[in-house]
Amino acid sequence: MNYGKRIFLWIVLFWIGSAQVFAEPFVQGGPIGSQTSDGYDALGPVVEQPIEFPHNTHAGRMQINCMYCHTYARRSNVSGIPRLDKCMGCHNLIEGVKDRPRIKKLFEYWENKQPIPWKKVHDLPDFVRFNHERHIQRFYFQEKRPVREVCGYCHGDIASMTTARRVKALSMGWCVSCHQKDHLEKAGSTVTSHGPNDCWLCHK
């Protein structure tokens, strides 16, 4: 009888415990959106680029805004890979680094009139549509957050990497976990709203 009573009690306790989780997915880790471990961190593969582009120099040390090179991010779905003349626009004038192997390679492409065959690091499935424009407009221009934070939500701290590597899962649950949070509507305002939850916003 005691045995039965004990099992009975265990069942009740288990039930009460499990009732705490109502229709929420299982996600481990700390607060979502933090750039360290949050349960959604999934390092992507190391992608070998034709030129080992030092993001840490450009975005980190030089403090160049991400959108100086990735110009389409604020006005289209894709952020865009800068054209070769964008690189040359500066590097033609920077004499001090012209003898470095990476810059030499850059000039080689320029003289051969060849585009640099960059490889995709953040690749979403074909049925997913991610709009850079709306995110940048909302968080950078409307809410006036620092660009490294805004881009870093999804891309990680690129300013500390050389060639970029995917550090977030970019999975659906990861997207939703941010969309369901309330964000400020404008810098300084107290009105908040969550991201859209319509399937057709991201799926095409």
Partner: peptide, 13 residues
């Protein structure tokens, strides 16, 4: 409660 709150979760349609 589980079914109803699943229907009412963030992606509700």
């Amino acid at each position: 409660v589980l079914i109803a709150s699943a229907q009412a979760s963030f992606i509700y349609q």
